[in-house]
Design a protein around this nucleic acid. Structure first.
Length: 629
DNA sequence: CGCGGAAATC
DNA sequence: GATTTCCGCG
């Protein structure tokens, strides 16, 4: 296990799982990358390096080959593979480490959120809400939680009707396998899980609800619950993949292909034990297949955790989740178990220090290469190039129409107008903020901190200009999207939460909502501050973009690219208001807390591990699938 | 090398 | 939807 000293970053186990990709059945490139990364065998071709989540492709051709093999695309080459990787930029799953060749970095957040938005919090057992009780052990596969968090104890059971479905379902469904059959090779686990879920029936789900997004930390904490051993369902790791083929690759292996027992380097690695626990996801992959249910208890825990996170991060009140009936205690201080830990990791490896690197590294926006970022903005509709033909119809437009213009086109079909209420609600909800903030934060801190690194700084953020549209140049800059979009964007992508218009439906429509209204909750935050953090934190930020942008100050574009095209107009104004000072968040004393949190979030590179073997095993089982080409 | 648009595929 | 393929640009 361990070993790997290399680098180590461990991602949470779940990150490695194929199930992670909801939509598609086939293995996704990022999963594949993760797989490679976790295997020592491939360390010569690809390995973790630098900061958490950062990896370098040592042998691009080989990686491409492997990927091609996996996908049965013999023609694959690094150029293509890299295109695919670039494709992740928009999704924010990955971003490029500037200045370092063949070096990319994962954004944990996204991965987490996307794939495992909720995890089973369960208190323990993961009983599906609707489902029949599953005794823990058996059915769901859960990783042992490791989080120390005591914060929430979960003890209760749940059963409430939960609300969400989609997410849950997704999670549950896990499915998996890639190519060949849809079914999985693996497993039983999955099956089991699936069964539960299925049994439940998607329908049950409560549609309408939005899935909440949690910050990782929250997730972890929450979910992390106690250590539980319970259950991994089957230990039996079959394992052994061939050394030859990476993982599952072997096409056709059906049954067995599982992961090697080795844990991902990431996980295991960590030699440093100093922390006993690692907050990080690694261990905690609580989420896995379970589901989260909103039962009061759960919610309570959830919210609590969330709240805490908010405090810790000094997030804006908006961030607070609201759940009817449940009051969340506000933590004055984080109770974290972890004391110090700023960064938890001890760098066993030279690499680890990457933190320090930031400056050097590259990433960061700051200098380094001041490279001008190019914003790529695309002008509206230009006729694209169509290499081919030219047929043209020009027109189109949908995109551009934004601004007033209406001229004729006014409307793209899809404009989204949102009722204010919605918007607000969303804003309120904006849970996103958190993530965003997180992102922001880290930016500060380190370069990319993607996910973790919550340091709050002041960003002055530049949201500013959202270029108003028009202007000529404007085209360049992205058109304003409403913040709403932004976040939602994330959300959307990630969660796809549909907002419910009505909002209130009562209660729970979604816990998230409501923040605004509750002053009580909201207020707290930091000490010095007068107000809590501006609600308006939200703004964009985007990962990489941020980074890039930070330097400049503008950013936004990113999402936009596509997005913008789609919707453009939106309300421009709002966002403007909103934004701005987000950064303010004071940290207040936060550092300490922050650290801790960080700890939680960060998957510390080297540390941790302690995960139970169970975890590992579990992981192993999950493993990937292969394709049979 | 890396970016990203566009179209094609699956 | 997620790439794969192709390609021009910096």
């Amino acid at each position: 296990m361990k070993t790997s000293g290399d680098s180590g970053f461990a991602f949470p186990d779940w990150a490695y799982k194929p199930e992670s990709s909801p939509g598609s059945r086939q293995i996704q490139l990022w999963h594949f990358i993760l797989e490679l990364l976790r295997k020592e065998e491939y360390h010569d071709v690809i390995a973790w390096q630098g900061d958490y989540g950062e990896f370098v492709i040592k042998d691009p051709d080989e990686v491409a080959r492997l990927w091609g093999a996996r996908k049965c695309k013999p023609q694959m080459n690094y150029d293509k593979l890299s295109r695919a990787l670039r494709y992740y930029y928009n999704k924010r799953i990955l971003h490029k480490t500037k200045g370092k060749r063949f070096t990319y970095k994962f954004n944990f957040n996204k991965l987490v959120l996307v794939n495992y938005p909720f995890i089973d919090m369960g208190s323990g057992r993961g009983v599906p809400q609707s489902a029949p009780p599953v005794p823990t052990g058996g059915t769901h596969f859960r990783f042992p939680p490791s989080t120390p968090s005591d914060v929430l104890s979960s003890s209760e059971e749940l059963r409430s009707p939960g609300m969400f479905s989609s997410v849950a379902r997704r999670m549950a469904r896990g499915s998996v396998s890639d190519c060949s059959d849809g079914t999985s090779t693996n497993s039983e686990l999955e099956e089991a899980v699936g069964a539960d879920e299925r049994g439940v029936g998607p329908d049950r789900a409560f549609r309408g609800l939005l899935p909440p997004r949690l910050p990782h930390d929250s997730l972890f904490r929450v979910f992390g619950g106690g250590p539980n051993p319970a259950g991994l369902p089957r230990p039996a790791p079959r394992v052994h993949p061939d050394s030859l083929s990476p993982f599952p690759v072997s096409p056709c292996l059906d049954p067995g292909g599982l992961l090697p027992p080795t844990l991902s380097p990431a996980l295991s690695m960590t030699p440093t034990p100093h922390l006993s626990y690692t907050p990080s996801p690694s261990l905690s992959s609580p989420m896995m297949g379970s589901h989260f249910s909103f039962n009061p208890e759960d919610m309570k825990h959830y919210l609590q955790a969330h709240t805490q996170s908010v405090y810790n991060y000094h997030l804006s009140p908006r961030a607070f989740l609201h759940y009817p009936n449940i009051i969340i205690p506000q933590p004055h201080r984080p109770t974290l178990e972890k004391p110090a830990t700023h960064h938890l990791h001890a760098p066993p490896l030279p690499l680890s220090h990457s933190l320090s690197q930031h400056s050097g590294g590259g990433e960061e926006q700051h200098q380094q290469h001041p490279s001008p970022f190019k914003f790529k903005l695309q002008p509206p509709p230009l006729g694209r190039k169509q290499r081919e033909a030219g047929s043209s119809l020009a027109s189109s437009s949908s995109q551009s129409s934004s601004f007033t213009g209406s001229g004729q086109n006014a409307g793209p079909p899809k404009i989204k107008v949102e009722p204010i209420s919605d918007i607000e609600s969303e804003e309120e909800v904006e849970v996103t903020d958190i993530s965003e903030e997180d992102e922001l934060n880290h930016n500060d801190e380190k370069h990319e901190g993607d996910i973790f690194t919550p340091t709050a700084r002041h960003h002055h953020h530049q949201l500013n200009n959202h270029h108003r549209a028009n202007g000529n140049g404007s085209s360049l800059s992205a058109p304003p999207h409403s913040n709403h979009d932004d976040d939602p964007d994330d959300d959307e992508e990630v969660f796809k939460t549909p907002a419910t218009p009505s909002i209130g439906s009562g209660s729970l429509a979604f816990p998230l909502i409501g923040l605004k209204s509750e002053p009580g909750h909201a207020a707290p935050i930091s000490p010095g501050g007068t107000r809590c953090i501006p609600l308006k934190l939200r703004f964009k930020r985007r990962w990489s973009e941020d980074q890039k942008m930070e330097a400049d100050g503008e950013r936004d574009e990113a999402e936009d690219k596509k997005v913008r095209a789609e919707r453009e107009e939106e309300v421009e104004g709002k966002r403007e208001e909103a934004g701005r000072r987000v950064g303010e968040v004071e940290n207040g004393g936060g550092r300490a807390g922050g650290s801790v949190i960080l700890g939680l979030m960060l998957p510390p590179p080297p540390t941790q591990r302690r995960a139970s073997s169970e975890l590992q095993r579990a992981t192993a089982q999950l493993s990937l699938e292969n394709t049979g080409c």
